[in-house]
């Protein structure tokens, strides 16, 4: 069984090719302003990596905010379902899954079969999504990938007052002027973001096995801040958290093709 999952997120389009329940290839491109092209390119990239011809793909699942752009999809998978199945694929013990992408944050509670039984979404306000950390990195004049490691160096807690990306930018600039160490500012940024995500998780109730998906899960400080806030021993993060939803879509597409 060969299936594909294509996730059209706000910033990037991700494709996963799965053969008999294993990931065979991955493709990722910036979405830019031409979604159709991004879908096409990431799909081609994943096929090439998997060494599979497009004729051999039996079923394609599309998901993400821009999923309508996946014209060749056999199945459009709702985002909550995609993230649930993705998390379940990586960690069958997962009972809570959190996905923080560039423009949306989501949390869902799973049953033992990997079906979402409850969920909460943070959207339309950039303060609750990956964009927040990106904008703060710009204000701090620090490359995005260094933000996490930088924050981990700090052991000081300073609160941030602003709850809006725009006002938080000025607050960060103010902190820089006040000669606050960059590491402490970075930590404050991560803590602020984490507390928003955690409150969203609390809305659906926290289970022990929490899985994190989405591009923001690459950021170690963010994962740590969430773990600390949730007071858990550890969080489960797959190797390629960004592909979590694409995997979920591919899994659902395969199930559908097999009549399950």
């Amino acid at each position: 069984m060969i299936s594909a999952g294509i996730d059209c997120g706000a910033k990037k389009t991700k494709t996963v090719i799965m053969r008999d329940g294993k990931i065979a290839g991955k493709g990722i491109v910036l979405a830019g302003f031409d979604l159709d092209k991004a879908v096409h390119d990431s799909y081609k990239m994943a096929l090439r990596q998997a060494g599979i011809r497009s004729e051999d793909v039996e079923s394609i699942g599309g998901t993400g905010a821009g999923k309508e752009a996946v014209k060749n999809a056999d199945e459009l998978v709702n985002e909550i379902k995609a993230m649930a199945r993705g998390a379940f694929y990586f960690f069958p013990d997962a009972r809570t899954v959190v996905d923080v992408g560039a423009e949306e944050g989501r949390a869902a509670k799973l049953d033992e079969k990997g079906n979402a039984i409850d969920f909460a979404i943070n959207e339309k306000c950039a303060a609750g999504a990956g964009t927040f950390i990106e904008a703060m990195a710009r204000a701090l004049e620090t490359p995005l990938e260094e933000m996490g490691p930088l924050a981990l160096k700090s052991d000081k807690q300073i609160p941030m007052n602003a709850q809006c990306v725009i006002f938080a930018e000025s607050e960060v600039v103010g902190l820089i002027h006040a000669k606050t160490p960059k590491a402490d500012i970075s930590r404050a940024i991560h803590d602020a973001m984490a507390s928003r995500i955690v409150s969203m998780i609390r809305r659906i109730g926290v289970n022990k096995e929490v899985v994190m998906l989405g591009g923001v899960a690459y950021n170690p400080a963010f994962v740590e801040a969430i773990r600390r806030e949730l007071d858990l021993e550890r969080l489960y993060v797959p190797d390629y958290p960004e592909f979590g939803m694409a995997v979920g879509a591919a899994v659902v597409a395969a199930e559908k093709a097999q009549g399950r």
Partner: peptide
């Protein structure tokens, strides 16, 4: 269409393009 200033900004860039 976006209320959020941050998202409205990206929307505006799209419109300019």
């Amino acid at each position: 269409s976006s209320t959020c200033v941050v998202y409205a900004k990206s929307e505006a860039l799209g419109l300019l393009r």
